[in-house]
Amino acid sequence: MNLEILGMGVLWLFLYGYMIVSSIDFGAGFFHFFNKISRKDHQVNSLIQRYLSPVWEVTNVFFVFFFVGIVGFFPSTAYYFGTALLVPVSISIVLIAIRGSYYAFNTYGAKDSRIYSFLYGATGLLIPASLTIALTISEGGYVDVSNGQVRLLYGELFTSLYAWSVVILAIISVLFISSAFLQYYAHKAGDDNSYQLFRRYTLLWSLPTILASGLVFIGIRQHNPEHFSSMLDIWWIFGLSFLFFALVVYLSYRGKRLGTAFVFVMLQFFSAWFGYGASHLPWLLYDELTIYDGFVNQTMAWSLIAAFIAGFLLLIPSLYLLMRLFLFDAAYIRGERK
């Protein structure tokens, strides 16, 4: 394995971590608002708040690591993606700021209103939708590079089946991952009403998840046949992802081994995520930029890899301690300790 692939693998692992942790957070925010307007907040919102309170501050750590790393390993991405994504990323930053404002108001005792809850829930779906534009444009055909300028082709982007299929999959995946975790969390807390509700949500969003995944395959086949062919070469990885998905649905339906079911959720998305990433190599931006273009020198690469592995090894125990001390502490999970 060469340095370029190793560096990209480390970054992809951080982005996967962000996808899982933030999906739980984003989905919980949407469910918080949805349950409030559907008058089910008395059942579940206290449980959602118990999860969100200690977690929201560390959610973006994975995200920051990835963006620092992608520019560190592949400086040329700043030119191509930085210019093309200036507007979409600015929108994402504004949405993250709005979401952070909700946390601040809620933490310091401001009265919880429907407006705050709406912004909180809406940003939970809009942030992942806006961030997926980076993955979308990496398929090529959405960026014009001419006369030394990089320009995002909004017309092609907004009329593309593939672009919209990725947005749909991102939103549905957030809801599926979050509901699968919260059903386990509610069961662990002994909150049967919340557990039954999130169990229904998990089963409800399971079919749209697999349909949206199929739509993405159709979109890639139409937009980028070369990438689609590469995905077919490693079809077994996506078949493994589907197997994990089937196990999640089975265990959720039976109401057994819900912790294992969520592990299968993580494995489901791990398989699909790394299958997509592996089939995308060596391209960072199709027809314009590969992982071998403008890669940092060997000394800098090894330093970055060591730093990021050390950061990952520090982050994982920190999350473990967070879960032991708060999320899965017997008194905290039942709402007896704040």
Rank of each mutant, 00 (worst) to 15 (best):
H280W: 08
Y250K: 11
G255Y: 07
Y276W: 05
A261Y: 00
V248T: 12
F269Y: 14
L247P: 03
Y250R: 13
L267R: 01
A261G: 01
L251I: 05
M266P: 03
H280Q: 13
Y250I: 14
R254P: 08
T260F: 01
F244M: 12
V265S: 00
R254E: 12
S252F: 01
G275W: 01
F269T: 12
L251A: 05
W273N: 00
S271L: 05
M266G: 06
V265K: 05
F264P: 06
W273T: 03
F270K: 07
G277Q: 15
T260R: 06
A246M: 15
F270Q: 07
L267D: 00
Q268A: 09
L247C: 08
L267S: 05
A246K: 12
S252P: 00
Y253L: 10
F262N: 08
G259K: 00
S279Q: 15
V263M: 12
T260I: 13
A246T: 10
F245Q: 12
F264S: 10
L251Q: 13
F269A: 02
R254N: 11
V263Q: 08
F274R: 06
V249F: 09
F270Y: 07
V249E: 01
M266N: 03
Y253V: 14
L258N: 02
K256G: 06
F264D: 04
L247E: 03
A278L: 13
F262C: 01
Q268H: 05
W273V: 07
F274G: 02
V248P: 00
A246E: 12
A272T: 10
A278G: 10
R257S: 14
A261E: 00
G277W: 13
Q268V: 11
A272D: 01
Y276P: 00
R257L: 11
W273E: 07
G275C: 02
L258P: 04
V263P: 11
F244K: 04
A272Q: 04
S279W: 15
L251G: 04
Y250A: 12
A278C: 03
W273P: 12
W273K: 10
A261M: 03
S271M: 14
L247D: 01
H280C: 10
G259F: 00
F244R: 12
